[in-house]
Computed example of a mutant assay.
Amino acid sequence: MNKLALFDLDHTLLPIDSDYEWGQFLVRIGAVDARAYARRNDAFFAQYQAGTLDPVEYLEFALGTLARFARRDLAAMHAQYMEEVIEPAIRPAALDLVRRHLDAGDLVAIITATNHYITAPIAKRFGVEHHIAAMPEVDSAGKLTGKLAGTPTSGPGKVVHMHAWLAALDRPFGSFESSHFYSDSHNDIPLLSIVSHPVATNPSAALAMHARSQGWPLLHLFND
């Protein structure tokens, strides 16, 4: 594993935002108050698109919602969410891209700002063992507290968390002969800027403009 391949998740490997869609799913199945939850979820999503989102505030809103439910109920809801929302959104082009890196023997990870609970099964569906995401805090009994453990995995935080993950593997970033990072978001410019092969994937307008100025390739996976 002399090459590193990193992938953002939402709007990069998936044509949807898994975090936002989880909230919409909870509303649809009646697990949360529809009007109040949808209002806050929509407001946070608009802040994300505008680049003004406070990641800790949003994550603790999302994690606080998870903490209301027993683990067995969460597991049942997540299985339904995977079947009804995630599976129909998965595109062959995204699976093939990940598979090419895995088959080449690269060290592959999905690194996402969305929380670990929501995204771990999605990473598994893509066949990716290594998964870096915002971690929910748990108490001594293993119950979700609704708080964030550590720092967010967004923006510059992705760089910090990537280095910590590689250090735990005893594989420092500089030991790889090449590194790819695929992302759609201008929020990921800090990590895109340090890999040897940044790829603006299904890029937002802001990222597409920056990528062109830097000579980075643009990749569109969802033009079917």
Rank of each mutant, 00 (worst) to 15 (best):
M1W: 13
K3H: 13
K3A: 12
K3Q: 15
L4G: 10
L4Q: 11
L6I: 09
D8W: 07
L9M: 04
L9S: 01
L9K: 00
L13Y: 00
L14K: 06
I16P: 00
W22V: 04
F25L: 05
F25W: 07
V27A: 14
V27S: 13
R28K: 13
A31L: 11
Y37E: 12
A38D: 14
R39K: 14
R40V: 12
D42M: 11
F44V: 06
F44T: 04
F44M: 07
Q49P: 04
Q49G: 12
A50S: 15
A50W: 12
L53Y: 02
P55L: 09
E57S: 14
Y58H: 14
L59E: 08
A62Q: 11
A62Y: 11
L63H: 12
G64Q: 10
G64F: 10
T65C: 15
T65Q: 13
T65W: 13
A67E: 11
F69S: 13
D73E: 15
D73I: 12
L74Y: 08
A76E: 14
M77T: 03
H78Q: 15
A79Q: 13
A79I: 07
Q80I: 08
Y81K: 10
M82D: 02
E83K: 12
E83N: 11
E83G: 08
I86E: 05
A89N: 06
I90N: 01
I90P: 03
R91P: 01
R91W: 07
A94L: 09
A94Y: 08
L97I: 10
R100P: 11
H101Y: 13
H101W: 14
L102Y: 07
L102K: 12
D103E: 15
G105P: 12
G105A: 14
D106E: 15
L107E: 10
V108Y: 06
V108C: 11
A109Q: 05
A109C: 10
A113W: 03
N115W: 03
H116T: 03
Y117E: 01
I118K: 03
T119W: 02
P121K: 10
A123W: 02
H130M: 06
H131C: 01
I132V: 06
I132R: 01
A133S: 05
A134G: 00
M135I: 06
E137H: 10
D139W: 15
S140A: 15
A141T: 15
L144M: 15
K147D: 13
A149W: 13
A149D: 10
A149G: 00
P152C: 08
S154F: 12
G157D: 01
V159K: 00
M162E: 08
W165Q: 00
L166Y: 05
L166Q: 01
A167L: 01
R171E: 09
R171I: 06
P172N: 02
F173S: 07
G174Q: 05
G174T: 06
G174D: 07
Y182E: 10
Y182G: 09
D184Y: 06
H186R: 07
H186F: 10
N187K: 06
I189E: 08
I189H: 03
P190Q: 05
L191N: 02
L191F: 00
L192S: 03
S193L: 03
I194A: 00
P198K: 03
P198W: 01
V199M: 07
T201F: 05
P203G: 02
A205V: 10
M209Y: 01
A211G: 02
A211W: 04
R212Q: 08
Q214L: 02
P217K: 11
L218A: 09
L219V: 05
L219P: 04
H220T: 13
H220C: 09
L221A: 05
N223Q: 13
N223H: 12
